[in-house]
């Protein structure tokens, strides 16, 4: 019947109009006085009494709090996480990158009695301005030294500033994503919940051997 379809459509529209919005405000969200008080760690009355300017701002919807977007732990973010202590400078990551944007320069770093010849990493630059976050470099790393990071807010005004140099990698917040790192998922590590993980022993595929095993391997067997 002519018109019946329209009525049906109106019903769907009405039903959806009454629902709460499913959009998420990003990067921050306007909150009222109660939200502002919660963010400042005070009761609403306390906020008005101690910080009247803030309270007035909040009342005029001029107070905003940052929003954390729910993300999944395999998220391939653009802040790479690199553990220098694990990296041997083998450059597998550089070879497997489809775009060839990882630059690695190493030099003989001396002789370690236990580990043999070791290489110092002089340059480890990732030009994330051209990176497509495919994660193939992470998949290629045989020593679990390189991980995708979980952050993504790295906008810059200049293209050159997008290169992550080795010094920045050394100091960066280490929140490795569990992309291609099943050991993180076995241990139930979630970068968004658990925060930084600076301990380079814990990110490998194997547990750190205890002292006894190490002694046996390095002292007694030689």
């Amino acid at each position: 019947m002519i018109g019946l379809g329209l009525l049906k459509a109106m019903r769907v529209t009405l039903r959806n109009a009454l629902k709460t919005p499913f959009t998420i405000q990003y990067p921050d969200r306007k909150v009222g006085i109660s939200g502002a008080a919660k963010n400042e760690g005070k009761s609403p009355v306390g906020l008005i009494a101690t910080q009247p300017v803030t309270a007035a701002k909040a009342a005029m919807s001029m107070y905003s709090v940052p929003v954390n977007i729910p993300q999944n732990r395999r998220f391939r973010g653009n802040e790479f996480t690199w553990y220098e202590d694990r990296c041997t400078g083998c450059a597998s990551c550089a070879k497997y990158c489809p775009l060839g944007i990882i630059e690695i320069v190493t030099s003989p770093g001396g002789f370690d009695v236990q580990e043999g010849e070791s290489y110092a990493i002089d340059v480890f630059d990732i030009d994330i301005g051209r990176c497509m976050f495919c994660g193939l470099c992470v998949e290629a790393c045989p020593y679990d030294a390189l991980h995708m990071g979980s952050q993504f807010e790295r906008s810059k005004y200049e293209r050159d500033a997008l290169v992550i140099p080795v010094d920045e990698l050394r100091q960066a917040l280490r929140q490795p994503s569990s992309w291609f790192r099943p050991q993180f998922e076995e241990r139930d590590y979630d970068p968004f919940r658990d925060g930084a993980n600076d301990e380079h022993h814990s990110v490998g595929r194997h547990e750190k051997p205890d002292q006894e095993t190490l002694d046996k391997r390095w002292v007694e067997e030689r």
């Binding site: 993300q71 999944n72 732990r73 395999r74 998220f75 391939r76 497509m132 976050f133 495919c134 994660g135 193939l136 998949e139 995708m148 994503s177 992309w179 291609f180 099943p182 998922e185």
Partner: peptide, 28 residues
Amino acid sequence: DLFEMLCGARITNSYLRPGGVFMDAPEE
């Protein structure tokens, strides 16, 4: 969102590898 759970990316997935997928689906 489900794809992000599977492979960490929403559009440019790169999830499949010759002979299967790169990693099993997480329990969630």
